[in-house]
């Protein structure tokens, strides 16, 4: 047994896991009958189909040739996703200015050619622009600074 399409194998396994996750959440939602579908009907059928597709795609990977696994670039992915998480966590207590500064600071690690002085200028300009557009012009209710 040889894996011919590693991408499909991983993708198929991910679909199976997603299907299990969905089933665990559906729990005891009423399934109902075809004529009177309960809230669980559609999700159960779809979660089952997701699992089935996972099995098909993973199974296919043993038969059909496909591309090798693409390298995941964690050096780029982690700072970007981390920057978004940081913004989400910081916006409420710390305000837009600090949350954006955090976003830029963390995201900068994703790029290999970051010039820190340039980043400082660009960040400052973008924060000014954002405050001007979203808070002053559009009047969105954003906290600008930390609230204690």
């Amino acid at each position: 047994m040889r894996v011919r399409s590693p991408q499909d194998l991983v993708g198929g396994i991910a679909l199976i896991l997603l299907s299990l996750l969905a089933f665990s959440q559906i729990g005891d939602l009423k399934f109902g009958t075809a004529s009177r579908m309960g809230p669980g009907y559609f999700p159960t059928v779809l979660a089952g189909l997701t699992g089935l597709m996972g099995v098909i795609i993973a199974g296919r990977s043993l038969v059909l040739d496909g591309p090798a696994l693409d390298q995941l670039h964690w050096r780029q992915a982690l700072p970007i996703l981390g920057a978004i998480l940081a913004f989400g966590l910081a916006i409420r207590p710390l305000g837009l200015v600090i949350a954006s500064a955090l976003l830029f600071g963390i995201a900068a690690f994703a790029s290999s050619d970051t010039k820190w002085r340039e980043l400082l200028v660009v960040s400052a300009a973008l924060i000014l622009f954002a405050v001007g557009l979203f808070v002053l012009a559009l009047g969105l209710p954003f906290p600008l600074w930390p609230r204690f």
């Binding site: 966590l89 916006i91 976003l103």
Partner: peptide, 22 residues
């Protein structure tokens, strides 16, 4: 960084929810 900032601010502004951004 500019695109990223617009993404975050845009999503936050829908419901004023940091969880939504996460």
């Amino acid at each position: 960084p500019a695109i990223l900032m617009f993404c975050c601010i845009g999503v936050y502004s829908i419901n004023s929810s940091g969880v939504e951004v996460m």
